[in-house]
Design a protein around this nucleic acid. Structure first.
Lengths: 125, 125
DNA sequence: TCTTGACTACTACAAATGTAGCAGTATACT
DNA sequence: AGTATACTGCTACATTTGTAGTAGTCAAGA
């Protein structure tokens, strides 16, 4: 479900990540997480939260005079459609450039390598 | 070099792909390729070409009254930085979601699988 | 040479995005 | 109770993106 969501901008991704980590949170909570990465004003974060509600990535709720925001999309499914879109519009379903990038990236945790090998085995039989 | 280029939008990607395939081309050439995928007006394509010149992805040249556009960026390097940005802002350098997506995608050409295996071998020694 | 069509240069305009500011109200401290 | 704070709701405004339209010019055919 939740299929036809509008795309997220890079900035909105940053906000959503904080929301997914925190679960139901006040604007200030999210602000405090996010400001460590980006020097945004509180109201900037607030604006983006409200836009994410409008885009139906977050649910909105009031507790007294506080605004609470809760993710109503999962990180997993949103990430998946981001990948799908990326493979579609940028890479034309060609995985090689990613694999090359992966292979060149010397910072890869070796568990990733292991998982990948396992996936290939499975896929391969 | 050519490092700090502005990001391309999805639509601009479509145009750039046509440009990379065609090399130096007139606006009409590009339009004819692109219109098969997107029902854009000629002037829409023209506008995007001009924006891509401004963004320094294309070089501009006149031949008589014709406008010629030539890529001055390589598909490879632009793709690479798109991947970099994607890994950065969306996936936090975690390759697993891509691999999972790859593994689930039953339409993968088996050469891709082979190449991936080879890459892993190399990386793994 | 007049007309028609192709091309370009320039302009347009709404929606999305980045980035807040401000005024008003609710709270909490003195 | 009065004052300083914290929050919210609303507004703002420049830039980027999507998507053209139009007027003027050049070239080719009648």
């Amino acid at each position: 479900m939740n299929n036809e969501l509008q795309k997220l901008s890079d900035s909105e991704w940053l906000i959503m990540k904080a929301c997914w980590i925190s679960g139901k949170s006040t604007a200030r909570d999210i602000y405090q997480k996010v400001v460590k990465k980006k020097k945004w004003e509180y109201t900037t974060v607030k604006t983006m939260l409200d836009r994410l509600v409008k885009k139906e990535y977050l649910e909105f709720e009031k507790l007294g005079n506080l605004c609470l925001y809760t993710p109503c999309t999962s990180n997993k499914s949103v990430t998946e459609s981001a990948i799908k879109n990326f493979m579609n519009t940028i890479l034309d379903h060609n995985f090689m450039p990613i694999f090359l990038y992966f292979a060149k990236d010397r910072k890869i945790p070796s568990e990733d390598l292991e998982s990948l090998k396992k996936l290939i085995e499975e896929y391969d039989q």
